[in-house]
Amino acid sequence: MAYNMSSSPIDDKKRRNNIDGAHSKIAAHPAIIIRPRKSIDTSDLLEILQFRTVIYFLIWRDFKVRYRQTFLGLLWAILQPLASMVVFSLVFSRLAGISSDGVPYSVFVLAGLLPWGYFSHALASASSSLTNNRDLLKRVYFPRLIIPMAAILSCVTDLLTSLGLLLLVMFALGVPVSLNIVFLPFFLLIAIAAALGAGAALAAAHVRYRDVGYITPFAIQILLFLTPVVYPSSLIPASWRLVYGLNPMAGVVEGVRWCMLNIPPHPEMIVVSAISTLAILLGGLYYFQRSERIFADIV
């Protein structure tokens, strides 16, 4: 029974090559070796590319289904940030008198809501993606990471819609678009990477612990207050700024405001956020891969 584990990786590889060599004439398709999953296997990441049709169709399914049988359809992608913008402007600008770094508060808050709305939505749908696709996990094989990945990527359409909304509101209020906008994709990629890392980890944890289903919405709510969405990051004391940057979305929101509105950023905070995102992405993928082999057994 300990057959596989007793042999060293090198022996294994040799043996595998021998078998492959002997059958190369009949097996055009490379032989697939099924054995206990132990550690990180980079071939899994390559396999995701082979299964890109599945990613494409899962994204397409999410998109098709999201606004089926709704009266307003895609308008919801605009109405949600628009309504938040109006409410936040009333509460935080009019009532609380929070400053907005010299641009109209509505534009200021909408530029923050753009990446934040994407991140919170993507994280929430990724964290429940594995449990919602239980049937797929139990009945068909494909790299499991595809499921949270598709959940995160299918929210990108809403991100682009709200970007259009932001440009429209800026135009209406006469706020000029900064040339820094060419750097916007970089910050959006950070938001996607952070959502993927955290989303994959939460999805994997959700399979084991249903508590995650209760924790996630709450954590997202708390995180909103630790992100400079409704207030400018200049309110944070300089000595706390690096710690504050550990929240990937702090740097992202800061960066998006710089790209769109040319509000001077705190570069050190953005650097910390970028590093923190990388750590979250790698850590999340590692935890996901480690948990992956038992998904079908316990989901």
Partner: peptide
């Protein structure tokens, strides 16, 4: 079908 992972041993699928 690679839905669950074996505890030990292995299977090789040609094709």
């Amino acid at each position: 079908a690679r839905i669950v992972s074996p505890t030990s041993g292995r299977a090789t699928v040609y094709g």
